[in-house]
Simulated scan of single mutants.
Amino acid sequence: METSKVKQLNTNLIKAILKTMPGKTKADIADATGLSQATCNTILNELVSIGEVLELEREAFGGGRPAKRFMYNGDYGMVICLYISNDGKKPVLTYAVANLLGILKEERTIQKKSVDYSTIEELIGELVSKYKNVKSAAIGIPGVVIQRAIIDICDIESLVNCPMAEKLQDKFGIKASLENDMNLTSLGYYQQHSYAKDTSIVVINFLNDICPGSGIIINGKIISGYTNFAGEISYLPFGYNASSLKERKEIIDCVVKTICSISALINPETIMVTGGLITEDMIDEIRSGCINTIPERHMPNIIYQHNIHDYYIKGLTAMAFESLPDYLTIENLNNTKELLWLLT
């Protein structure tokens, strides 16, 4: 491997350590990464010089030996998290701006008469102008997204077939990624609750006057399927017009059949139920209906969540970070350290 690539891996290792363990000395960082103190010293000096890492006062972390300590500067960059929702009335844009440590700097919801690509571009443009160091934008779509770039099926017709990611990247020079709304919500839920890596969870969403959808996480990864169609539960052949469910009995019946189908196919640990058609007092009936079909020992935990906003934003933030060229988490830190050991 080229020397420059090895150095980049070393740099990413050090940044990953500092993002999760602020206030470490060069010796601490060398021990955590397996790099020499000389290598850490060179990289830290470079990161401090550009402002991506901050050198703390020697006494900032209490007593002990007065060695220099460092922390990652989250405000070195920002990511934009934006999602479009449509409850059968007017479309709504919700956005948040987070720094590179995931700390939210701004959050807002805007109701629009209509939404098309120009609406999204205008809002992204305003935020890029306001925050000069935007690194990426992650956008949630109520529909099918192909390769995190092109909108296929969508509840908002004006966005169908829009190559939004490419257009935004060309316009603003930042990485842009798109993903299905329920996929992002399920990812955010999974990460928020710190599930074990081999856990499977599903989020199902039943909204008023809109086809239901779901997001599937298996082993910590979004399951999109061969053509990104996985999770489109409105196409299950239950004999309902899923976008016009009204009566309580048929809503519960449809949810029960959906949960039973998902349980038989992937046997998830947890299924979270949400959406305007669902109320918390339905959950016991839904659970009882499922037990009539699925043996109780194989039943998932069925939970109700009224507001999924925080999970959605967390999923968007995770996708925005993942799109960055220096993305590295502590989870794959050991793999990177092993690779560097083999190369040196």
Rank of each mutant, 00 (worst) to 15 (best):
D310F: 04
I50A: 06
I218N: 04
V145S: 05
T258M: 01
L18T: 09
G213E: 00
I146K: 15
L184D: 03
I151R: 03
T39H: 04
V134C: 02
I50V: 12
N183S: 00
Y240E: 02
L93G: 11
E296Y: 06
L265C: 11
I271M: 09
K89R: 15
D28F: 03
Y72T: 13
I222L: 01
Y311W: 01
D198R: 02
Y117T: 08
S263D: 05
K167Y: 07
C81I: 09
K135P: 01
E331Y: 11
W341S: 15
N332I: 12
N208F: 09
K5E: 08
T20Y: 03
S114M: 11
S158G: 05
G188T: 03
E232W: 00
R297D: 07
E157H: 14
E122V: 14
T119W: 07
S129G: 11
P142V: 06
V92R: 14
L127E: 10
R248H: 13
I218F: 03
S136M: 10
S129E: 08
D155W: 05
E232N: 04
T344M: 15
L159E: 01
G23Y: 07
Q191F: 09
H309K: 11
N41M: 10
A165C: 06
L13S: 11
Y304W: 14
Y235P: 04
I266K: 02
